[in-house]
């Protein structure tokens, strides 16, 4: 698999805020990446630097194995930053003509992309008459105009009503199915869990995790144990290296796992030491819980 984007030690110091700290990650072709982090974690600043609107304080990156961000690179990328930005006094079609000229794309692609996002009938209407959901879809049409290899979306469902959110998500899934690499910045865990195959987790400008979503979920999990002799069971916990933090919940102990553990081994271990388990459940965490734990621990 080839690398679309490689980021090394990216850093941004604003006058008072250190927005991005020594951030490194990579994006592989064909995957849907979630750039996940609470508000103010440096997502937009990171994307701004990678798209050439914000000057970095340090670090480097490669798009398609070429250093930095050039206009040629940008023509291979489609991006939407925060809210959609268009000329409010122009129609959808006129706005896309500007984008097409900037991206050196023929005007005949405009109708195709407008129909992709379901706005073909409204192409002569002024942008200012559009609902937020329509504006956001127009932004996706503009970003898709050059059939980009990478689509970058920054909080694409922010401020939309439930119907608008569903439309945008379906659109993202549709575009991803066509093989476009997607980098989706969001603070909504649910969103990332639904549409992304990979996740990069940011907190205060640092990367906490970068990898596949399912690995992230299964690497950590929770084991619930109950037995005839709770005290003895607790005293034995330290012998299991895979066990992390524990929490006593009545007679049930909840154990966070640091690595993958087979419940059979756990059962056999306690049997050997004369403890009979009355309760043994292994469950994977929801991304939300996982994320909250990760962010809190660091």
């Amino acid at each position: 698999m080839s690398e679309v984007l490689l980021v090394n030690n990216l850093d941004k110091q604003f006058r008072r805020i250190h927005a991005v700290k020594d951030l490194s990650f990579s994006v592989q072709k064909g995957n849907v990446y979630g750039l996940l982090g609470p508000n103010g974690s440096g997502k937009s600043t990171t994307l701004g630097m990678l798209l050439g609107t914000i000057n970095p304080s340090g670090g480097e990156w490669e798009w398609f194995n070429k250093s930095g961000t050039t206009t040629e690179t940008l023509h291979r990328i489609g991006a939407i930053i925060e809210q959609p930005n268009f000329y409010s006094y122009l129609s959808a079609e006129q706005n896309l003509k500007i984008t097409a000229k900037i991206k050196n794309v023929a005007f005949n692609r405009i109708d195709e992309k407008l129909s992709l996002v379901g706005l073909l009938e409204r192409k002569k209407d002024k942008y200012s008459s559009f609902s937020l959901g329509m504006k956001q879809r127009l932004a996706i049409a503009a970003a898709m105009l050059s059939d980009p290899e990478v689509l970058i979306l920054d909080e694409p469902t922010n401020g939309l009503d439930p119907e608008g959110i569903i439309q945008i998500r379906e659109l993202i899934v549709k575009i991803a199915a066509g093989g476009t690499t997607i980098l989706l910045a969001s603070h909504l865990l649910d969103e990332v869990e639904k549409v992304c195959s990979h996740v990069i987790i940011l907190k205060e400008g640092k990367s906490l995790y970068c990898g596949a979503v399912n690995q992230f979920l299964s690497a950590h999990g929770i084991l619930e144990l109950g037995s005839n002799d709770t005290d003895k069971m607790i005293s034995l916990l330290g012998e299991f290296s895979a066990f992390g933090d524990t929490k006593l919940n009545g007679n049930i102990i909840e154990i966070e796992l640091n690595e993958n553990v087979d419940p059979v081994d756990v059962n056999a271990f306690f049997m050997k030491h004369g403890v009979v388990l009355s309760h043994l459940v292994k469950r994977s965490q929801k991304l939300e819980q996982q994320f909250i734990d990760l962010v809190r621990h660091e």
Partner: peptide, 14 residues
């Protein structure tokens, strides 16, 4: 004010 310059940059106008 409407962040259109920023969008121009992102779209690939240097």
């Amino acid at each position: 004010t409407e962040k259109l310059f920023k969008q121009n940059l992102i779209d690939g106008l240097s």
